[in-house]
Design a protein around this nucleic acid. Structure first.
Length: 443
RNA sequence: GGCCUUAUCGUCUAACGGUUAGGACAGCGCCCUUUCACGGCGUAAAUCCGGGUUCGAUUCCCGGUAAGGUCACCA
């Protein structure tokens, strides 16, 4: 029987869940699910100095938000007894040894555990890169643990991969040069090598490695969430970084892929070898595509969270009006966070409070009287954008649309840019529309 | 610097020796439209350089160049 496929994502809680980690997690998830395997989530929190509960929570929240469900979760901080046992085992077989350190820097220990490295050549196969060769002699007798209770990352990671039965190690390319020493330790433990797949790294627009330090605003998954990107878009986006679906010629829309689509089309062996620059504009486009798929109800539900309370607590704010605005908003944003900008710029205020348009913006009020008269002929409960357009359109065409429609729109919105006048009038209702027109004629 | 990896439009990428080098995003243009947004149509834009191998190289090999990764008692 073939061993069941086991993959894992093992971030460490020393920072927010990184977008590159999201991609590694996704690839591991897809590969495991495609092969009816197991996907493990392991929190590598052996570094007690830098690991924090806040970051641990962010890791878990982000995984849930992305919808990457895992089969098992482990915390390395709860497994020190296991590492200790393995350390003792290797000590007994003399594969590691206590080493007296001569030069000790601050915070370092005088005695640590080192690996007895015979310095052989290691050749390993990588799904994306092919065969990679290293001379491990240059590694020397590297440190595996500070003491029996505090193993270093490499050691803990290898022990866990071995014990948890990880068959495929899919991770970032920055781990390529860590692989030989991990193979050395794994073989010392008596484990067999997993299959490796090193994904190209994700670069920031300045072509350097995407780091929390320098690219904070686009590095953390929680930040994307905060900016109002949908998790589906983020998943779709990271999937396309380093991988692409096959049949693009037949159907351009093939770039919009849900998790379910990805499960069908994803092919780990088709992963790109070179690093990919993260392109926010493409994410914006994808996000908009997902936003478009939302029903008005779904949109409102998600969008509401981005309404600033300073706005909804205004004395003139009315939820009834706001509900009519959602479709208009949906049409002009790439991400939900832009709602906040829209509101801050006062682009929505005129729906709630009558504007005081200036004479020069209005240009002319000459035709407003006729427009008002025509609108008055409609019944108040049949004041739809279509009906409004019907009674005005011919007149506007006769007089020159710019001379009729522009002042009408300005009279209602007070702005240089806004949605079309028919839509505004319908939302405002007949009474308010007529009031604003009467007022504008006095300017 | 040593070691490792990589190299197709601005960006993400397709092509597994023979294509007018394809698509997507962004850009630009036109149309729709009083404005904005949406939408429709169209357009420009690439094989890092030099040697091989081959009838033929984006594709295979070698060298250069450039970029990135990694060289911890961090993960």
């Amino acid at each position: 029987m073939k061993p069941k496929i086991v993959t894992r994502i093992a971030p460490s809680p020393t920072g927010l869940f990184h977008i590159a980690t999201a991609r590694v997690a996704l690839f591991n998830y897809l590969f495991a699910r495609q092969n009816d395997g197991k996907f493990i989530f392991r929190i590598d929190d052996t570094d007690t100095e830098r690991s924090t509960p806040t970051f641990t929570k962010d890791l878990i929240d982000s995984m849930n938000w992305l919808g990457l469900d895992y089969d098992e979760i482990y915390y390395q901080s709860q497994r020190t007894a296991i590492y200790k046992a393995k350390l003792e085992e290797l000590l007994a077989s003399d594969q590691i040894y206590w080493s007296q350190e001569t030069e000790i820097k601050e915070g370092e220990k005088a005695e640590v555990l080192r690996f007895r490295n015979s310095g052989t050549k290691i050749i390993f196969e990588d799904i994306v890169h092919g065969s990679i060769e290293f001379d491990t002699a240059e590694l020397g007798d590297f440190v595996v643990a500070k003491d029996l209770d505090t193993p270093l990352y490499h050691f803990a990671s290898v022990v866990d991969d071995f014990l948890l039965g990880v068959t495929h190690v899919i991770r970032g390319e920055d781990h390529i040069s860590n692989t030989p020493r991990q193979i050395l330790m794994l073989e010392a433990l008596g484990g067999s090598r997993p299959t490796y797949a090193h994904l190209p790294i994700i670069l920031a627009p300045d072509k350097t490695k995407l780091s929390k330090r320098h690219h904070g605003q686009i590095a953390a998954v929680s930040e994307y969430r905060r900016l109002g990107y949908l998790s589906e878009a983020v998943v779709n986006f990271v999937a396309m970084l380093g991988w692409s679906p096959q049949s693009l010629k037949d159907d351009p829309n093939q770039e919009i892929l849900s998790l379910a689509d990805l499960l069908k089309k994803f092919d780990l062996s088709k992963t790109q070898k070179s690093g990919a620059i993260l392109n926010i504009e493409k994410l914006d486009w994808l996000n908009r595509e997902y936003l478009k798929k939302l029903t008005p109800t779904e949109f409102k539900k998600l969008a509401q969270e981005f309404l600033p309370t300073e706005f909804t607590t205004k004395s003139w704010y009315q939820e009834k009006i706001m509900d009519k605005l959602w479709p208009l908003i949906a049409e002009r944003i790439n991400r939900l966070g832009e709602i906040t900008d829209l509101i801050k710029n006062g682009e929505l205020d005129f729906f709630f409070v009558a504007p005081k348009p200036s004479a020069e913006l209005l240009k002319t009020t000459e035709y407003l009287g006729e427009v008002e008269a025509r609108l008055a002929t409609l019944s108040a409960d049949d004041f739809s954008a279509e009906k409004i357009k019907d009674v005005i359109w011919d007149f506007a065409t006769e007089q020159g649309r710019g001379r009729v429609l522009w002042p009408l729109r300005v009279a209602l919105s007070g702005l240089e840019k806004s949605p079309d006048p028919f839509t505004i009038a319908a939302i405002l209702g007949q009474t308010e529309t007529l009031t604003r027109l009467t007022y504008a004629r006095t300017i």
